[in-house]
């Protein structure tokens, strides 16, 4: 978790060329350069490359096995279900204890991928959309290997594709095909799709939002809060192009909005400072909103290796597990 915060404190646009090694990872833990990765045509191949590389590295991780078993004993109190009494312990100690286990059910995860026009921008040789799709594919593949149910939703100003969360043969394939399908998105409108998602996904689970969040954030808090209120875990992957962060254009030009088509004469040298300030401000607001709602926020510049994103995902899940057990928000169950 300390790695998380360290990474978040770094300047948004100052993404290191070589990402931080994972904590505890050896020096030979190589991350795949996204530019190289993106040359792989098949999305599933890309995802596998990342996940398998990640898994190899994971073996050296001190956090192996997040499928948690026994957690604690607790003194029986009136009203506890007698089925969860540890009779053996009672036999030994003549005391009533309730034995508590972590729930190790399969995870239901929905990946929400922003397919709006603004995602088609990219200054690194590939677009934010490609990066986002790869990220989504990676997560789906990873979760599938864990036998968790994965679903997919793509949206612009409304939900365009919807694959419900399942774990069954061929489902991953369908997700991959859906992710590879080009989508003529329109403007980014987070409010509408989020509201719709909250209505559609009724079972508790995990919601991964992959978006550039280039939309007014006034209603973001309201709708994310609504989803959170329905018991969904939310992780936000904020996909950003390095050019958006640094605005390192050097020639004045007519800047054209991909979504609206509006043009604006902009001289980068003059506007850069102001732009960076405003953009940073926007990111900070999004981050603050997520913080407030207990949502994990991961910033993903497109030149950042995807493994790090996957690692962020896992660490967020882990921290969420600890947090939720502390807050008691997650359902605890005693296994008989």
């Amino acid at each position: 978790m300390s790695t998380d915060s360290a990474q978040h404190d770094a300047p948004a646009y100052d993404v290191p060329a070589a990402p931080d090694p994972l904590p505890g990872a050896g020096a030979n833990f190589d991350l795949i350069d996204p530019a190289t990765l993106m040359r792989i045509k098949g999305l599933e191949v890309r995802a596998r490359a990342i996940v398998e590389g990640f898994m190899t590295g994971l073996h050296r991780s001190p956090y192996h096995g997040f499928s948690v078993e026994f957690t604690e004993y607790r003194q029986y109190t009136d009203g506890d279900d007698l089925r969860y009494l540890d009779w053996r312990l009672y036999a030994r100690s003549d005391r009533y204890y309730i034995k508590r286990f972590e729930d190790e059910t399969n995870l239901r995860c929905h990946v929400l991928l922003d397919a709006s026009k603004s995602m088609t921008f990219g200054s690194t040789g590939y677009t934010k959309a490609e990066y986002g799709a790869t990220l989504a594919a990676t997560l789906a593949y990873f979760l599938s290997t864990q036998r968790d149910a994965v679903g997919l939703m793509r949206f612009d100003d409304q939900i365009r594709d919807y694959l419900p969360a399942r774990f069954r043969p061929g489902h991953l394939r369908r997700i991959m095909v859906a992710l590879e399908r080009p989508l003529e998105g329109k403007v980014t409108d987070l409010a509408g799709p989020l509201q719709r998602v909250a209505e559609m996904v009724t079972k508790r689970g995990l919601l991964v939002l992959v978006s550039d969040l280039l939309a007014p954030i006034e209603k973001l808090e309201e709708h994310l809060g609504y989803i959170r209120g329905r018991g969904q875990e939310v992780i936000v992957f904020h996909v950003l192009d390095p050019a958006e962060l640094s605005f390192d254009f050097d020639q004045p030009a007519l800047f054209e909005d991909v979504e609206s088509g509006k043009t604006l004469y902009v001289d980068p040298d003059i506007i850069r400072k102001q732009y960076v300030d405003q953009f940073t401000d926007h990111i900070a607001q999004v981050e603050a909103t997520c913080e407030k709602l207990g949502i994990d926020y991961e910033r993903c510049p497109t030149d950042r290796p995807l493994e790090l994103a996957l690692f962020d995902f896992l660490s967020a899940r882990l921290s969420k597990g600890v947090k939720s057990s502390r807050t008691g928000s997650r359902k605890a169950r005693v296994q008989a």
Binding site: F249, A253, F255, E256, D257, V258, E259, L264, I271, H282
Partner: peptide, 23 residues
Amino acid sequence: IRRTPRGRQIFSSLMFLQPSPPR
């Protein structure tokens, strides 16, 4: 005034941009 650039630059959003006076 410098000659106006003929090029157009596609950008994801003009949300955070202001028009610049000609330099």
